[in-house]
Design a protein around this nucleic acid. Sequence first.
DNA 1: TTGAAAGCGCTAACAG
DNA 2: CTGTTAGCGCTTTCAA
Lengths: 331, 331
Amino acid sequence: MRKTGRPTMIDVAADAGVSLKTVSRVVNGESGVDPAMIERVRASVARLGYHRNSLAASLRSGNRDTIGFIAADLSNTFYMAVAAAVSQVATRERMHVVMASSEEDADLERTLALDMCQRQVGGLIVVPTAADHSYLAREVELGTPVVFLDRPGSGIPADAILLDNRGGARDAVAELLAAGHRRIAVLLDAPSIYTMAERREGVRDAFAAAGRALDPALVVEGLHTPADARDAMERLLDSADPPTAVFGTNNRLTIGALETILPRGADVAIAGFDDFELSRLLPRRIRLVDYDVADLGARATETLLARGADPATGSHTQLVPTRLVDRGGVR
Amino acid sequence: MRKTGRPTMIDVAADAGVSLKTVSRVVNGESGVDPAMIERVRASVARLGYHRNSLAASLRSGNRDTIGFIAADLSNTFYMAVAAAVSQVATRERMHVVMASSEEDADLERTLALDMCQRQVGGLIVVPTAADHSYLAREVELGTPVVFLDRPGSGIPADAILLDNRGGARDAVAELLAAGHRRIAVLLDAPSIYTMAERREGVRDAFAAAGRALDPALVVEGLHTPADARDAMERLLDSADPPTAVFGTNNRLTIGALETILPRGADVAIAGFDDFELSRLLPRRIRLVDYDVADLGARATETLLARGADPATGSHTQLVPTRLVDRGGVR
DNA sequence: TTGAAAGCGCTAACAG
DNA sequence: CTGTTAGCGCTTTCAA
């Protein structure tokens, strides 16, 4: 007797009076089955309300039809948008996606990644938080491809899909410099975060190209939240020699800066990395480094699936381009 | 010989010179194993790089450790935020989450839901698009609980977690009425969408309570995108007898209305259902119906898990409260 | 074209 | 405390 009430292929076979294998053939749409048999099996499937147990099928066949996605922080709209794109491509390719957020915690990332490998995912898309990913070396070696997204990983051969962080930051700051600004404040999160380091380099590039020097007093690091950025901006504006422009190196920091600048009506030009909802409706003109988030997620997924099909070739890093957009200025 | 290169419990057992069952005990942390044996098995596990195949474990034990989440539209920030909350609670409870978006397509919803059932999910959280969910009746009956989120489902016994759509809309419009507005425009998506119908009723409630009648000419339905709302707002403002206030029944429609109102500097009071990023930074005062999105997702997940533990009791609908917030008015 | 047997990797049930 | 046996539901292999 069955434990669970769910009918199995054996039940269908018995009901239809055919062998187990014939049911399997019909259920999987294999060719070379007598039409009359197909009909009989179909009828039994419908009568019993049979659904194939794809876990059992995967176990036996070794086919993996799930991909894992580990975001650094799913509460960030950026990663949520990436997740949506991953899910969309996966659905199109008839794959499932299991998702989780590492909350920027290296230990949790490791736990989640290994958990997903135990669940036999066919591949892993990871926004890396851990410094070293050799804990995944064994899995990669055994045929579970890994693609890093937004930040490069280390310790294993894996493809990476990154933004052109440096180029985007450079372009934004170059435009501020071209507009005549010299005292440009730069708001940064922790410099240990890859994207922050890259964007800071981009700022340096722009200053170097303009033959100017960045005032270190205007570079504020370690800002995690919009509130942090808001407070930092207050201090900058209240200082003896305030900036005439500010560059927020991510959306949260740019928004925090706006929370100070707009209510005060401060005369500061604003630029930032990442576009955000409603940027068009801001009362001030703002220059933003924009890019196609969905493209980032889609490319990662496509790269992963291609890698699953062909594990041989060496790993590559793809750079998703950025472009400067002009937003705001309403009223 | 093994097909895949992955070591199995049998390999570990052979390496450690113990039985399969002993390995199983150690790997699963069961009590009552000799410390010396535990050590031996641990050593072999480490040496071989063994990881338990949890698919096989699930197949045998019947334990389900994955929950499915089907959003109506993952590109909508609202559902993305819900998804993040679902994922967070699931991770806390040591569950995996598989996610997908039905793209508001009833057939796709059905396909995705049944696919997930075939993958043996322990439960399903669905933002329903289909009119009838009796296609899931069999699964519910066989012990896969379903929780509907944001919209009620029909055709199966299932819990539902909904917003107080009607009360929220009523409160917002009541405040516009109290402020003296009589000609209040209402922007709606398709009235076939549950939340739209509810919110429209809430608007009616507010007018009825004030002893006023809503002008049907100011109620615009079938608006899907911000651009639709923007255009509708243009027409309303250009009409012979324009509104003095507008209520957007979701974030996209409110934003679309703003895209017309702000650049024109139109003298129209604004209220809307759903808060959105940056609402605080708007140059105009705006009243919004806010609620705790994370709570919505968390409750759904907790309800699902509780239901998995106790399938007996009757199904319930929970209403997540809303509150009116005052935003904008910067500069 | 159809079927019988074996076994994917693991846990349950029962001995010892 | 440890081991043996069976079998979860399916696909693979090979024979008819």
